[in-house]
Design a protein around this nucleic acid. Sequence first.
DNA 1: CATGAATGAGGTTTCATTCAT
DNA 2: TATGAATGAAACCTCATTCAT
Lengths: 225, 225, 225, 225
Amino acid sequence: MADTNDITLKPRRAPRQARSQATVDAIFDATVQVLLADGLQKLTTIRVAERAGASIGTLYQYYPNKQSLLFAVLERHLVRIGDTLEQAATAVHHTPLDVMVCAVVDAFVKAKTAHMEESRALYTVADALDSQQLVQRVRARNRAILSAMLATATDVQFDDLATATFMFSTAMIGPMRAVIEGNAPSKVTRSLRKQIGALCLGYLEREAQPRASARSRTDKIKTAA
Amino acid sequence: MADTNDITLKPRRAPRQARSQATVDAIFDATVQVLLADGLQKLTTIRVAERAGASIGTLYQYYPNKQSLLFAVLERHLVRIGDTLEQAATAVHHTPLDVMVCAVVDAFVKAKTAHMEESRALYTVADALDSQQLVQRVRARNRAILSAMLATATDVQFDDLATATFMFSTAMIGPMRAVIEGNAPSKVTRSLRKQIGALCLGYLEREAQPRASARSRTDKIKTAA
Amino acid sequence: MADTNDITLKPRRAPRQARSQATVDAIFDATVQVLLADGLQKLTTIRVAERAGASIGTLYQYYPNKQSLLFAVLERHLVRIGDTLEQAATAVHHTPLDVMVCAVVDAFVKAKTAHMEESRALYTVADALDSQQLVQRVRARNRAILSAMLATATDVQFDDLATATFMFSTAMIGPMRAVIEGNAPSKVTRSLRKQIGALCLGYLEREAQPRASARSRTDKIKTAA
Amino acid sequence: MADTNDITLKPRRAPRQARSQATVDAIFDATVQVLLADGLQKLTTIRVAERAGASIGTLYQYYPNKQSLLFAVLERHLVRIGDTLEQAATAVHHTPLDVMVCAVVDAFVKAKTAHMEESRALYTVADALDSQQLVQRVRARNRAILSAMLATATDVQFDDLATATFMFSTAMIGPMRAVIEGNAPSKVTRSLRKQIGALCLGYLEREAQPRASARSRTDKIKTAA
DNA sequence: CATGAATGAGGTTTCATTCAT
DNA sequence: TATGAATGAAACCTCATTCAT
């Protein structure tokens, strides 16, 4: 696999016949399967083609090189997570902070857990590939989503929204990744959502200022005093 | 690079002469340098040997295969971080929680930041290597260290110490890794310690119970009321 | 591209409909274009088909294999040069030697220069193809043309006409090819016709015997003496 | 075989042990042999390695790619011809033109004929390789050699030495190449030296001016008259 | 007739590892 | 012990050609 620079990562051809679309899909799926079954080290283009029931030549008709294959798989995964996040986040615009955190963490953990094996495999892919660009693009999108959501919290607001968002998103990733990579006591795995929720909420509440317009309980007390 | 199973990862010989030790070190350092300069993809045994000023034959006298080389580098890095953590943690046994968190986060961020490039490079190595075992061992040690520390907190105690420790350690990793991989706004990078401190403390305070025996300031106030 | 032996080089079907003929022509032209634009190395059947606005399937309906394609192009080029030569040569039958040489060299240089790029590209093709047979056939024809012409020279005759003809034709090729391949000082390129004329004439006059029947100026002088 | 641009054509390693030098030579020779026996089309690195009695890996230790192999062979051939030419030319400095031409043509034809098969094979190589640079360098050298020689002719001098030299050198190539490629009547092949000599001399005498200082026989006669 | 998806032999090249010197 | 030449399995990728639709 050559250097990543100056290599096209985009799939080569938008197939026009129904037959080809099936082939493209088969190759894509085979890539995921080989990745899960054998790991990145043993993922060779031949092996992928074989598992897809296609010839090596066919594979290269649709993906110009090995990287583009992995890239495609990685991209779908990340986009999928991003989409899930977006749905969840959008749904809780204009709600209190704790509702937001709950919703987002829930969606995130659920999405990652549902495709846990794929996630694990793709961590490997992400840094074997020089996928900085893709990863950063996706992360930027995710932060934008979270940012937009947090800005509408009914009970609080943030001095430094960018930082809060960054910490929020990366705070989720730390424990989640540890679980995915199998480095967690099993007890944790079960209560993961609650724990990550606590982590994020603990941080965000600390950093938030109460919002003047919408008075929270605390405000009332303070005011009363 | 052959399969990871059934391959010795331990350095081949514990060299007894000073000259040999120098060679081993040179090879080790060269590995790190090549890793930083060229990345894992371009790290070949020959290149390492050349940079070390040795021949491949010599390299293979001390490291039975490429993996063992990378393993050694990875191990030192992880152990170094662990040691730093241990020192910091031990120093703040029997102090209040906030002091503990501050000390540990400080040490962690400082250690990672000091060897930032090495850290980045080694994330790649850790994935490529089937280094599950090593990583888990190290993480287990780190958790033990933190656990032992938290248990002596003067102001709080934890129902579920294992979980708290797990979340504590992984919470640090999430944002740190994002920064190392260059996915963070520069503003964050500067205030990283404070932010990660807030993240951890926010979580731990939520999960902690006040310790009956050693009354904290809060207790006193409450009691006074 | 398979072995040259046992492969049909002739176009596969002599198309009878106008539409087909257009397709054949398009493919033929595309071949030349690709050859000029990308060189022989990058000339693939697909690329040719694409440029011709046809599909590979169609290409293979008219040309049984890649070689036949190149062969056709090469042949046209050589035949074209040959035709030019023939016209020029026929026109100067029964004239003095210097007129003949002038005419032929003129025609040759003009023809080659007009399709200079094509010429250059086709040198490559001729080598890659095992086109010995074609080349030899064409050269034989050319020699026959020149031979026939020289035999009618009004002022001289040749003891060894075959040799003279051979030298004549190849003498033109040497400098011409060097110019085409870009290995000539630009000054030469401009005066090429005159130079090649001098080369050929210098040789032929040396090798010629004055013709008894038609007395040249030299004869008269000698006789007068 | 990849594109020629941005590819190192120089041999990879100057071997330090005697053993390697033998290997390099073996590979080199094998390349020539395969070229002669099977032609460029069938020349594969594996085949070369096999014939050299080496492994493919060994081949690539000394030649970074297939092109460099061919390049090396081509270079030696051209340099060899050039050297022969140089020797011959230098030996006849300060002699009359006809002596010079005889000597040079003799050397040229002899050199080419001696390695006739190699010559034929290398014509193919020369334009498969983008060896423009090499070829032009060599031709420039050859022209310089001839130029220097012609300048010392005792009986004549040239107004336009560059052009004369160019024509001289390319005039030799035309017929020679035709013979090598098998496109010549066998009769010619035998008298080739004489014929090429006549060709060159015919041209050069035409283009030369008599040298005032050193009077030739003709001069004397004229003067006498 | 036209299409273009599929094929797969075959080519180039890399690099971890061995072993004779 | 040190060396570095040699090894060769194995990876990636191309492209002429076929054939079902």
